[in-house]
Design a binder for these strands. Structure first.
Lengths: 358, 358
DNA sequence: GTACCGATGTAGAGCGATCTACAGAGCACA
DNA sequence: TGTGCTCTGTAGATCGCTCTACATCGGTAC
């Protein structure tokens, strides 16, 4: 054991150790054509003995980095880990690795995170950026496989995968309607920028809400409330809404975090689900937690993560036509929704547990 | 304009466009010594015009990649996002970027994730690996700055940052003791491998529990139950524990996820906090959620994330002596703990020693 | 006038892989 | 025996940066 910190082995060291050329070693580690069994064995033995690991940076200079990247907005949203879990499972057994670039805190964080991935020369990446321009991704998509998650872009140079937000909104409104609710408010978080991207999930959900309300005979009750995308703001908005004159009988929130804020407000006001039902979107684990037990729309995030990987690997393998996947959502009925009491003070909360989850 | 998808600009293009040498451009983008103001301006103008971005891979070949990496175990644990949030804040304004390598699903996932980061030649990384050998990190630490989070290793080639788990356990036990509880069981998740790392957080918490129990006059009631680290297993174990003859009056869980499983069990058995109090560790956001309202130990994860970045940047700047940070935890009292009712429903008899062994 | 000096810029090697082009061996077939 | 083909393995260029060594230049000191 030498004193100085030894540099770790390079392909050159392996080649010398095995008594072959660098190119030969390269072929072996890439499983490329033109290697005899005997050679393969010898090289693998040397690799093992020297503890050699190819440097991703050097590989990326000419070939591929064997790295896929995920750009993730605010990591505190519990929906995203589901996607990553699914992706990791799909990646097991391939030679590809996953890195995650969390969007930073400033407004331009998503774009920067995408740049981080491109700068690292990932072989493909997934992005969840409701606010970035499609044109930008069209351009990037010409060079690097891209999957956009959540948005329903009609892209040609990149793929998309999204939940069927129209159907999801329909499920939510339909469920409330079945329970006798008519005054259903939609609470959504639409930052200014997102308003420019009509294919963004929240925009589509809102459109789905309007359509469902109309189809179910509540077209005259359509009411959409916009709010900053955090639980506190949602609670405040809900408090105002629920203590005003025109109290709705149900609130359909654009995602679970908002719905949790609403639940907080109903708790503070002492309102039961029979008086004001609440339904979220994403079915994050906190919604499923028994003490919370919030009705929500499940988007099958784990499955989405798997498909993202499949789409990326397909593109890497050469596919050029765009694919637009849409996943049917599913209603998860829990205890935050109940038959409308008709405006009476208190009513029973019947127990309908739906324990299936991811 | 040509038809083919244009390759993005390289340093060569910028140099030509600005009418200077590659080396000059390199100096400008690295803010290195020996650049005139006039030159800096010209180069920056060309960079902007061409939309040039240096490739991380090429930089990593000779210099640094300006990338820091975080190895994160199971991303579904809500504690880790806090750390990342803190790190992102500390990173804003520096030239460094953060990438995250999620540990895969197989048993060796943590090691592989660390390798992913090393292969990508990050300039430094953080790891949360309760089970990997210190020797391995001592060796890596000679070449790359490493911060180990959670473990109390007495390392010399890498830094550590951890909550004061002895103090945390003391807070938990002390709080329960103050409420009149004596039969306090410690529920901990210790996979086989972790048992070999005495500095791992769960091991230290368990030791802290024993010490606190002894100091607070409950040395004869020490009972430690091991369980697989997931909510379901925890619930099952709690159900068994709470419906057995020797029902404890309180359960101190090694982390929130386990505590949530216990809460589920107490809910199913209809036990109130006055009968069986529950306390967790990590103070994840689900614990703070009003409907859950679980007493827990806060570890200041966001602050930890900041410090991790500071430690890494310090090392990169040349520090060689190890630093071992310890963060004092804080008790967050909520509604899952309450003064002991005195065992109204059942009397507790003798208490056996725990079954911890090898 | 010569020597020295600091400041600025350039030339060219080098990082560790991949990839293209090609050489040599072995074999089949006319 | 000569030709052509497949199969293995090698040589050497190359990717886009950084870094070391050195050239140049104007100013100052002696």
């Amino acid at each position: 054991m030498t004193i100085q910190a030894k540099r770790s082995a390079t392909i050159e060291d392996v080649a010398r150790h095995a008594g072959v050329s660098r190119a030969a070693v390269s072929k072996v580690i890439r499983d490329a054509y033109g290697v005899s069994d005997e050679m393969r064995l010898r090289v693998h033995a040397s690799i093992a003995e020297l503890g050699y690991r190819p440097r991703a940076a050097a590989r990326a200079m000419r070939g591929s980095s064997y790295t896929l990247g995920f750009e993730i907005p605010s990591i505190r949203n519990h929906f995203f880990p589901k996607i990553i879990t699914g992706a990791l499972a799909a990646l097991a057994g391939t030679r590809y690795q996953l890195i995650v670039a969390p969007a930073g805190l400033d407004p331009d964080g998503a774009r920067q995170a995408v740049q981080v991935l491109i700068d690292r020369q990932v072989d493909g990446f997934m992005t969840i950026s409701p606010t970035l321009a499609p044109e930008w991704f069209e351009e990037i998509g010409q060079r690097t496989p891209v999957v956009m998650l959540g948005r329903h872009d009609a892209s040609i140079n990149y793929d998309t995968i999204a939940g069927d937000d129209i159907a999801g909104a329909r499920l939510a409104v339909g469920h409330l309607r079945d329970l006798g609710h008519r005054d259903i408010v939609h609470l959504t978080s639409t930052p200014e920028a997102e308003a420019n991207i009509p294919s963004a999930p929240h925009i589509v959900r809102a459109a789905g809400y309007e359509r469902a309300m109309t189809e179910l005979g509540c077209g005259d009750r359509i009411r959409i409330v916009h709010v900053e995308p955090n639980e506190g703001a949602s609670r405040d908005a809900a408090l105002a809404l629920l203590s005003g004159d025109e109290r709705p009988s149900a609130i359909f929130a654009g995602h679970d975090e908002l719905a949790l804020g609403v639940l907080q407000a109903t708790a503070e006001l002492g309102l039961t689900p029979a008086e004001v039902s609440v339904i979220g979107y994403d079915d994050t684990d906190i919604a499923a937690y028994p003490a919370v037990s919030m009705t929500s729309i499940n988007q099958f995030g784990t499955r989405m993560g798997q498909i993202v990987i499949e789409l990326l690997l397909d593109r890497i393998a050469g596919r050029t036509e765009p694919v637009h996947e849409v996943i049917a959502p599913r209603l998860m009925v829990r205890h935050s929704t109940a038959p409308w009491s008709g405006g009476a003070s208190r009513a029973h909360t019947d127990v309908r547990q739906n324990e299936l989850s991811e």
